[in-house]
Design a protein around this nucleic acid. Structure first.
Lengths: 224, 224
DNA sequence: CGACCATTTGATATGGATCAAGCGATGTGG
DNA sequence: CCACATCGCTTGATCCATATCAAATGGTCG
């Protein structure tokens, strides 16, 4: 919504200097202008012109749609290193995005990326790889929605543990409602399932937002 | 599975001459070698090297995964004009594909497409557009799986009607089991739902495989 | 401390799965 | 040409996972 400042050489340099061990798309996509959003504020809305793509530096983002019946479906959670807003069909965003926690992102014009990709095959290849990974992610989401509540929650926890790379302690940035809207369940079911997993000694719910994985293989079994 | 003959200049020319009013990706992707498959035969299997991409000329194809618990999830149905097998993460197919009915496809090396895309920005752009459309399709599949049985079936019929472009008469190439595995339902539920839609005068089930849409707006309302 | 919001827990309802049987079309051998 | 087997589909009865409705608990921030 707030159009970020145009990409200028100095901001470009500044962004490049911020390059760090952000996950997998090495370096070429580490450009753009840093912009920050406060918790629960909108980054962009569905149907808005998709001029910019974003990469998370710190914090966390959810992308979602509001369905006709008022329910909200979360398409994905985006953690540091992740890109979002890039792959849109046509010129409008197909999802809304907002910051779950206070978040800083790098903003870059999609058009700029397109030009760069045209000029540098390496960048084009990276974009293509990213696209493949994104497609895979959405396909996995389809498979997730076919499973039982227990499998969905167990799978979600394992995925978050992997993505946050923090051993067995998973600090969830998102609320139960967010999780429910991602997994296609209700908050009650998510809560009950977590309680169930705790009774089964697979996890420990330290606080609502902090889960400790006690028995990964059990979780993996439940994930099936 | 049966590795198609290598792309040679004469087959290339032959394929180009077959160019016709196949749907949306105009012409540049209308190249490759025609190959035919009989009904219910495998085109490729999951985990096989993804050397080739395919475009349906005539017939129909399903792509699917077999899940750990033995269920089958159909990722999509591919009708004349559609491309499949192109977007794979890495070098292996992530889905299996087989012919639903007797089917002819154009086969082209993915590598060839990559080279062509590198050389011709127009082709690169077409591939990118296709990718965006594919991503959208999978995202829509996610949304589909959140709906009620009635909404899924109604939405499926509307989609098929649109894709086959045959007015109100929809000739389904696939079985109830295929539909169920696509919609994440059981055959019983699909069957009952169709009967229900017929009672509601929204459709007419002429034969098991031929559905006539009697009241699209009602269907659209049920699709929500 | 008190208010508010997120989460958990409890009781009940329900949509779709499962189990089981019947039916209709298609094809095959006698 | 018909009897019969087969396969895909429909219909029926029951069960179960998750939604829904409702209330209690707990954590956070003024």
């Amino acid at each position: 919504m707030p159009p970020p400042p145009a990409l200028r050489t100095d901001t470009f340099r500044r962004a490049i200097s911020m390059r760090n061990a952000l996950a997998p798309l090495s370096h070429t996509l580490n450009l753009g202008t840093p912009v920050s959003y406060r918790r629960n504020t909108e980054i962009f809305g569905e149907k808005e012109p998709a001029d910019y793509a974003y990469r998370v530096i710190s914090g966390s983002v959810r992308t979602y749609k509001i369905l006709d019946d008022g329910r909200r479906q979360i398409g994905g959670f985006h953690l540091p290193g992740d890109i979002f807003g890039l792959l849109e069909f046509g010129d409008e965003h197909t999802f809304s995005a907002d910051a779950i926690t206070d978040t800083t992102v790098l903003v870059v014009k999609r058009k700029t990326l397109a030009v760069l990709a045209g000029r540098h095959p390496a960048i084009a290849r990276e974009l293509f790889t990213f696209t493949g990974r994104e497609l895979r992610r959405v396909q996995d989401h389809v498979l997730l929605l076919l499973k039982t509540a227990q499998e969905r929650v167990a799978g979600f926890l394992l995925e978050m543990a992997e993505r946050t790379c923090a051993g067995n302690v998973v600090d969830l940035p998102m609320s139960r409602q967010d999780i429910a809207d991602y997994l296609g369940l209700t908050i009650e079911t998510v809560s009950r399932t977590l309680t169930g997993l705790e009774s089964a000694a697979a996890i420990e719910v330290s606080t609502a937002r902090r889960i400790v994985l006690r028995n990964r293989s059990a979780l993996r079994r439940l994930d099936s």
